[in-house]
Simulated scan of single mutants.
Amino acid sequence: MFSGSIVALVTPMTTAGEVDNDSLQRLVDYHVSSGTAAIAAMGTTGESPTEHRRTPGRGAAGGGVCPGAHSGDRRLRLQQYPPAIRLSQAMAEMGVTAGLSVTPYYNKPSQAGLLAHYTAITDASSLPQILYNVPGRTGCDLLPDTAGRLAELDPVIGIKEASGRLDRVSELKRCCGEDFLLFSGDDHLALDFVRLGGHGVISVTANAAAADMAELFRAALAGDWTQAEAINRRLLPLHQQLFCDTNPIPVKWACAELGLINTSMPRLPLIPLDVSGQEQVREALLKAELTGRG
């Protein structure tokens, strides 16, 4: 269903904090024309904790990009309000191809709790689900053995692994099978992740470097490691500097600097990138040869 460079799409906002629909459509068109394999909207990079109201991947399907969307929530049932389940059901109705379902955060469930959580979601919705493991954000680590048990559920088709551990690739392949989709959630490790058997990346960097990331992973998946490594070396400073502050603060600034969106405004409690961070990201854009292309 998916492989290659999938963008973890930023949510463009106005200075008033509302979604900038013109910038959003321009950004989607940019990814369609750049060869991005799919759009993952409203994830961490899309500021999902404060922006769950909008349609994911708006206009993308007509352009040949398969939209996915963040469908996770730590709450399953709270006073008859089931956000994780309702999000999955709503996204299926909107024509989203798959949901990106993050592990519940803050309440730190056990592996048995994670199994019960995802089973409840898949019992309630047939939307294909890509699990999302990001322990640094959630305080919860979805282990390969648990992912393997979840892979037996029909709607569960893959995982975005953002633990920062490359040894997880072989463990996940052993537990989940060869057909289970494996995506890196760490841009700086993604090429090695694919070299070990992964299928691609769900990428922050692709917001600012869509064509380069698409070409990088086309080359990698075709076994052209020389080309893939050359592109990755050029992008490596950008992979790193896009995390000089909390994601997505730096990447939104980079997108605005490149003219891809109108403003770099995030939504509170995030605030715009400071001058020092701007200098770091600007230098990384120069090293990546992204400035001056327009």
Rank of each mutant, 00 (worst) to 15 (best):
I159D: 00
L24C: 08
A230V: 03
S48I: 10
L9P: 01
G95F: 13
G59H: 04
L100M: 14
H239S: 03
A151L: 04
L189M: 15
M94Y: 10
G200M: 12
A211M: 06
L191P: 00
P82W: 08
I231A: 01
P83M: 11
A230I: 03
H199G: 03
A92S: 10
P272A: 10
G4Q: 01
L9M: 15
T11L: 03
A37Y: 01
L273C: 09
D274R: 06
A16S: 09
I249F: 06
Q79H: 06
S34L: 09
I231T: 02
V169G: 01
T122Q: 09
S33A: 15
N262M: 14
G35T: 07
A147D: 02
C176R: 01
R293I: 09
P82K: 10
I271S: 14
R174S: 14
M1F: 08
L286W: 10
A210D: 11
Y105C: 11
Y106K: 05
G198E: 06
L216R: 05
R26D: 05
Y105E: 08
G72I: 02
L242V: 09
A210W: 03
I261M: 09
P237Y: 06
L142E: 00
A151F: 04
E283S: 14
Y106N: 11
Q25I: 15
R149S: 12
T44W: 01
D20Q: 05
F193H: 02
G35A: 07
F180P: 00
G99I: 02
L114W: 06
M265T: 08
R174N: 14
I6S: 03
A60L: 04
R53M: 13
T55C: 08
R149D: 14
S110Y: 13
G99P: 00
T15E: 13
R26Q: 06
H188V: 07
Q278K: 15
C175E: 15
V275T: 12
Q227W: 04
E18R: 05
G59K: 04
G17H: 11
E279L: 14
P104E: 04
A211T: 07
R137N: 11
G63L: 11
E178K: 05
L242G: 00
T146W: 02
K108C: 08
R168Q: 15
R293K: 15
M1I: 04
G177E: 15
A98F: 13
G46L: 12
R218F: 05
G200Q: 08
G158D: 01
M91C: 07
E215C: 04
V204H: 06
R137V: 12
S33C: 09
L153T: 13
H188Y: 12
E178W: 06
T146Q: 03
G64W: 15
T246P: 00
V32A: 15
L150P: 00
R234K: 14
V10Y: 02
R77C: 12
T291L: 13
G4H: 02
G35H: 09
F193P: 00
